[in-house]
Simulated assay, not measured.
Amino acid sequence: MKKNRNFKLYGIFGYPLSHTLSPAMHEAAFRRLGIDANYVVLELVPAAFKKLMSRSSKISLSGFNVTVPYKETVMKYLDSVRPEARAIGAVNTVFKQGKRWVGTNTDMEGFLRALMTDGGFHPSGKKAVILGAGGAARAVVYGLAREGVREVLIADCFPKKARKIAGDMRKLFKRVVYQAVAAGTPEVKEALQKADVIINATPIGLKSQDPRVVPEDWIPQVRRAKVIPRGRATQKASHGLKFFMDLIYNPAMTPFLKSAKKKGHRTLNGLGMLLYQGARALEHWTGRKAPVDVMRQALLEALKNKKEQWMMDGGWRMAKSQVYRHPPSTLRHPR
Rank of each mutant, 00 (worst) to 15 (best):
N6G: 13
N6Q: 14
N6V: 11
N6H: 15
N6C: 13
F7N: 03
F7V: 04
F7S: 08
K8I: 02
K8S: 13
L9D: 02
L9F: 05
L9E: 10
Y10K: 06
Y10L: 07
G11V: 12
G11F: 06
I12F: 02
I12P: 02
F13A: 09
G14Y: 07
G14V: 06
G14P: 08
G14Q: 05
Y15F: 13
Y15A: 10
Y15M: 10
Y15K: 10
Y15T: 05
Y15W: 15
P16N: 09
P16M: 08
P16F: 07
P16K: 03
L17F: 10
L17E: 07
S18Y: 04
S18H: 04
S18L: 11
H19M: 03
H19F: 01
H19P: 05
H19I: 00
T20W: 01
T20F: 02
T20I: 02
T20H: 03
L21M: 14
L21T: 06
L21I: 11
S22L: 03
S22G: 02
P23G: 03
P23Q: 06
M25Q: 01
M25V: 01
H26Y: 08
H26W: 06
H26N: 09
H26C: 05
E27M: 14
E27F: 08
E27D: 05
E27L: 08
A28P: 01
A28T: 09
A28W: 05
A29Q: 03
A29F: 00
A29T: 01
F30D: 00
F30L: 02
F30W: 00
R31T: 11
R31A: 11
R31G: 02
R31N: 12
R32F: 11
L33Y: 03
G34Y: 00
I35T: 10
I35C: 04
I35R: 02
D36P: 05
A37D: 02
A37K: 05
A37Q: 04
A37I: 06
N38E: 15
N38R: 15
Y39L: 00
Y39P: 00
V40L: 14
V40T: 12
V40Y: 02
V40C: 13
V40H: 11
V41Q: 10
V41L: 11
V41D: 05
L42M: 15
E43R: 03
L44M: 15
L44A: 11
V45L: 15
V45I: 15
P46F: 10
P46E: 11
P46C: 10
A47Y: 12
A47G: 07
A47S: 15
A48M: 12
F49W: 08
F49H: 11
K50F: 10
K51I: 10
K51S: 13
L52F: 09
M53R: 03
M53D: 06
S54F: 04
S54Q: 11
S54Y: 01
R55F: 11
R55S: 12
R55Q: 14
S56E: 08
S56P: 04
S56V: 10
K58T: 12
I59Q: 05
S60C: 13
S60K: 14
L61Q: 05
L61Y: 08
L61W: 12
L61D: 03
